[in-house]
Every structure is written in structure tokens, then in C-alpha cells.
Design a binder for these strands. Structure first.
Length: 413
DNA sequence: TCTGGGGTCCTAGGACCC
DNA sequence: TCTGGGGTCCTAGGACCC
């Protein structure tokens, strides 16, 4: 038996823990750059605010209805997520952290999985303040489906059997995990409107529509497990850092600064995991929503002659790539840096004519990381990253980093 | 005016090889 | 007129997820 523990409206719930007055009121949390609504309280959902709604389109609706609006506070959400996971892990020997707000738990061998799920739910709420729902099923896809239903009713916990025609029949096809917008349109056209009809369909038809991936989803719904639990997280293969700009950017200099910053951040992630990058990609683009402006987007990729985690080298290469795709006269909205084909530091393949260990460079980079960790991004940075950073993203209503920053601890008065 | 960021996997098609 | 067969590797693009 597999359980999916999923935090309800996670980012909103995190904000509510530190501002209890937000309970029972409409609340939304915005994406980076205060762009879209990415988390909504039930009250905000009831107002008709869809997932991913651009904020400028719902701003007036929010004003009229007294919706509390927050910029995203990823430091807080990341820390709250770790707390939830630590509670979950006390109950089960095997679990897979699937995302910032979801974990699969292996409840095989427990005599009363549903009862246990209820206790887990209560404990997480009590110890972290975060409300969760738990769905149970024989496979991950069934657990996921059960979780959806548990959220709406069933007191937050529900178990679903593969053969339950009325339950599966009540789930629209687009709500099945692994069936997105495109595939659901095609499946509906063929008459597979709900999870039950989809599960009963001839597998050859399903394979023709969505390949082996969709066929796996179908089998999972019939109770045949195709997606294993991954208790040990697989090392990342690529990593990316990109942001849209707070204002349109036209100058090469500003773009270079932005790209240098993204390169440093991406490299820091890779270093933290003990990996090295073998490839590097830089991309940039104008605002695709502005039909009245000339559009341009481009990217360029190189393979590095030696796997590296050296931010100075990455920044240098990234700037060169940027300059090879930069075109004057456009109003840019977004740029990003990808580090590709990551390999673990241990299995590093040396170069025939490698320059061996520059110890001073290594010490310097470590010091840079340490200072940045202690005093924040502005504590120490490369000159290429710029000082004014006029392009940086909007984040007008972020709450304090209550749990990770000494200066921002909540104060009781 | 204003529209997120970070991932994974699969497939088709082209380049290239013998 | 008639122009092989079988394989690998890489990349771009499409689909999905949170």
C-alpha cells in the first residue's frame, strides 16, 4: 500500500502558520516577479481565481474581495517542507520526497494503513501547523487519485481500490496524474472521459496516443505498479537558473550582469551537490506576450573541455555565449543559464592536458560561497554580477524568513 | 504596464558508421 | 529503369509534473 501525503495549498498554509489571522480568508501567493498566482487558499479558489492566473488580470478582483496577496518566500517554504518531511519520516521506514509539498510513503506491512494515515495527518498539523491530506492506493497513480478526492471531502484521508468503478468513474480524465491538457483532449475525443473509462480502454489505443508513458499510467490505474518508489533521490542531470526581469532590458551590459548572476547561482547548486558540469547553455528571449514588439529568442550550448564547478570559468563562458546570441535593438524579458550533463565529482573524467589543481582558486571560491551563505548575496560577489542590478525581479510583498534568518524571527508582543 | 521557475522522460529524425 | 540494410548517437521538440 502506498500513501501520498500532500500539503494543502502549501505556500498559503506556510504563510498562515505565522499569520493566523489569515485563516478562513482568501489568500494567494504569487510566482517569481509577482507574476502569477501559484497557490490559493480554498476561499481564493471559491472566488474563481484559477491556478496560474496572471496577477495583473486578477488584481482588481483581489482588491474588491480583500484577498491577501504575497510574493513567494522560498526560504520559508523550503524550511517548512523539511519540517513536514521530518515528521513523516518518524512514522514510516521508506518514503520518497516527490516535491516541495508531496511525499510518497510505503505503508506495506502496516496492518491499518488508513488509521495510521489519520494519525500522521494529525501529528503533522500539530507539530508544524501545516494541514495535509493523505491518499492511499496500491500504486502511486491510485494514491494520487485518492489524494485528490481526500482533499475535497472524506476528512482528508481516503483509500481507493483499482476495481472501484464508481470512484474512478467520478474522476475526470484530465485529473488523472500523467494526463495533461493535450492528452486529455485526445482521450476525450475517443470517448475516454474519466479514469474508469481510461483504465478499461484497449492498451494498444492508449499506447498509440501517448506512448509507453501513458500506457504505464493506465496500468497503474488498474493496480499494476509501473512507477517504483525512489527512496534515494537520483542525482540531477541538469540544472537551470533563469528569471524574468523586473523591467524590460535592452543593454548588453545589464544582460551580462544578469547572466553572470544566474551562472553563479546555478554553479552554487551544482557545487552543493558535489557535481561537475560538462555542458553549458545560455538563452535569452523577449516578452512573448507583447505582440506589438519585435520578438527574438535564442540559445547556444557548448560542451566544456573539462567538467567543472568553478563559477569564474562558468561566468566567463556564459558571457561569451550570451554575446554570441545577443542582438541589439530588442527589449529582453528573460534570460537563463543551464548547466548540462552533470557528473559526480568523484567520477570526474580528466582531460589529457589538464591544468592540475589550482588550490588558490578553490580556496577563493569556497570563501566566496561561505561569505554569501553568511551575509547573503550582497556579502561577496564577482564584479561581473554587477552592483545596481536594475533588472532584478519584482517581489513587493514577501513576508519575513521567519525560520531561517536570525534578524527575521517572529516576535511575540 | 503587468503573464514563474525548475525539472523529467520519450520520440522522431538526421548524421554518421560499416 | 534499376540505387541496401542495420545500427548508434545526438538533438530538438513535445508531453508531463510540481
Amino acid at each position: 500500500m502506498i500513501a501520498l501525503a500532500d500539503c494543502n495549498n502549501f505556500y498559503v498554509s506556510c504563510e498562515r502558520v505565522f499569520q493566523p489571522s489569515l485563516e478562513d480568508r482568501p489568500v494567494i501567493v504569487l510566482s517569481n516577479n509577482d507574476g502569477c498566482a501559484v497557490a490559493r487558499s480554498n476561499e481564493a479558489k471559491a472566488l474563481g481565481i484559477p491556478m496560474g492566473a496572471p496577477y495583473h488580470q486578477i488584481k482588481r478582483l483581489c482588491g474588491r474581495n480583500g484577498v491577501s496577496v504575497f510574493s513567494s518566500n522560498y526560504e520559508l517554504y523550503g524550511d517548512m517542507s523539511r519540517r513536514v518531511v521530518s515528521v513523516l519520516s518518524r512514522f514510516v521506514p521508506e518514503m520518497e520526497i516527490y516535491s516541495i509539498d508531496e511525499s510518497f510513503l510505503n505503508l506495506g506491512g502496516f496492518s491499518d494503513p488508513l488509521g495510521l494515515s489519520g494519525r500522521i495527518r494529525e501529528t503533522v498539523r500539530k507539530w508544524t501547523g501545516i494541514p495535509i491530506s493523505v491518499g492511499l492506493g496500491k500504486t502511486k497513480t491510485l494514491a494520487k487519485l485518492a489524494n485528490r478526492l481526500a482533499k475535497k471531502e472524506h476528512a482528508g484521508c481516503l483509500q481507493v481500490e483499482a476495481g472501484n468503478r464508481s470512484t474512478l468513474g467520478s474522476v475526470p480524465i484530465e485529473d488523472v496524474w500523467g494526463v495533461g491538457r493535450r492528452l486529455s483532449v485526445r482521450l476525450r475525443r475517443l470517448g475516454f472521459q474519466d479514469a474508469w473509462a481510461f483504465a478499461q480502454a484497449p492498451s494498444s489505443a492508449i499506447r498509440a496516443i501517448g506512448g509507453v508513458t501513458l500506457e504505464r499510467t493506465q496500468r497503474e490505474l488498474t493496480g499494476i505498479s509501473c512507477l517504483a518508489m525512489e527512496e534515494v533521490p537520483q542525482p540531477r542531470k541538469n540544472t537551470c537558473c533563469s528569471r524574468s526581469f523586473g523591467k524590460p532590458v535592452t543593454g548588453r551590459g545589464e544582460l551580462e550582469e544578469a547572466v553572470a548572476n544566474y551562472a553563479v547561482r546555478a554553479t552554487r547548486k551544482v557545487r552543493a551537490e558535489g557535481s561537475l558540469a560538462c555542458g553549458l547553455q545560455v538563452f535569452l528571449s523577449t516578452n512573448r506576450f507583447r505582440k506589438d514588439q519585435p520578438q527574438y529568442s535564442n540559445s547556444r550550448t557548448i560542451s566544456l573541455d573539462e567538467p567543472t564547478d568553478d563559477p569564474i570559468r562558468i561566468v566567463k563562458n556564459a558571457k561569451a555565449l550570451l554575446n554570441s546570441i545577443y542582438r541589439k535593438g530588442y527589449s529582453y524579458k528573460k534570460a537563463g543559464v543551464l548547466l548540462l550533463d552533470l557528473v559526480s565529482g568523484g567520477s570526474r573524467q580528466g582531460l589529457l592536458f589538464e591544468e592540475h589543481g589550482d588550490g588558490r582558486r578553490r580556496d577563493f571560491v569556497n570563501a566566496l560561497d561561505e561569505v554569501a551563505a553568511r551575509y547573503g548575496q550582497s556579502g561577496a560577489f564577482l564584479a561581473a554580477q554587477g552592483v545596481r542590478r536594475s533588472w532584478s525581479m519584482k517581489r513587493q510583498s514577501r513576508t519575513a524568513r521567519y525560520t531561517t534568518c536570525w534578524d527575521e524571527l517572529p516576535v511575540a508582543s
